[in-house]
Amino acid sequence: MINSQNIHDGAPIRRRSGRQRRKQLAGLLFIAPALILVATFFVIPLGMAFWMSLHNWPLLGRPRFIGFGNYIRLTQDAQFWSSMRFTVYYTVIVTIAIFAVAFPLALFAEKAHRFTKFYRTAFFLPVVVGFGSASLLWAWLLDVDSGLFSPAAEYLGLMTTRINLLADFDTTFWSIIIMVVWKTAGFNMIILLTGLQGISTEVQEAARIDGASSLQRFRRITLPLMRRTIALALILSVSGSMLAFDQFYIIADGGPQNRTVTAVYWIFSQSFGSFRLGYGAALSMVLLVILVFISVVQLRLLRNPEGM
């Protein structure tokens, strides 16, 4: 909109806009390294993966453009959808389990004890072990003959015969859930702990003086003020669980009877077992869309009135 000020006093505006441009340019320069990294390691590979997904792209041999052929094919891929259902089921269960353990741990670790530092370190320790190494360790612990759990249970007289925990879907599934909770609860505890420590003690004090019980304080103060932290922890847990692979590959090898094959496991199997890189890329794109959708829904559900 042109006004008299602009007409009669153009120079300061030009100076201001020049300054603004320089500021913007400086800002752009500051984020340039990050932008380059994101473009190089995410946007370009993503574009390439999408391009691959439009081809019959074997690991061995020449690619052939087939349009959306791979996407049409995956609609009829029973194993993929079965893997997706299993992955969602696993994500729901493991996320609840992690929070059920991590929240009390965070509440416990927040309070000043004699051994607070020791507890925090002990709870966090499994996090520093890689998922691959942790899975190998648990594969051994769960081994029916040379492992720990079954032989120990038999030795202690808890079972008359050794039970192969990996031979049945339920015991395999719950063994892996326990392993993942052991492995990741510490990380979620730290995230939740930072949220807890961010709540002003004055607010808690005021509520206490007003006669609020511990449960009331937790429901009316702690939980609402932890909203952002919980959202962060949830999104990290859900996206990580939707991409689960190592533990199911190493501990259960997708068994028994392919019932613990996750979405990523199926993508891996199609890409490097069946050598169908194009189809694997199409499956990855679909998983990405599902993951983005889940994350957006989570963000909307957990958005507080002030916005995230």
Partner: peptide, 16 residues
């Protein structure tokens, strides 16, 4: 590899 070796392939699935 697809029909015999793959951990999600028909051969391994059938035998198990």
């Amino acid at each position: 590899n697809d029909i015999i070796n793959s951990s999600t392939g028909p051969w391994k699935q059938m035998l198990n």
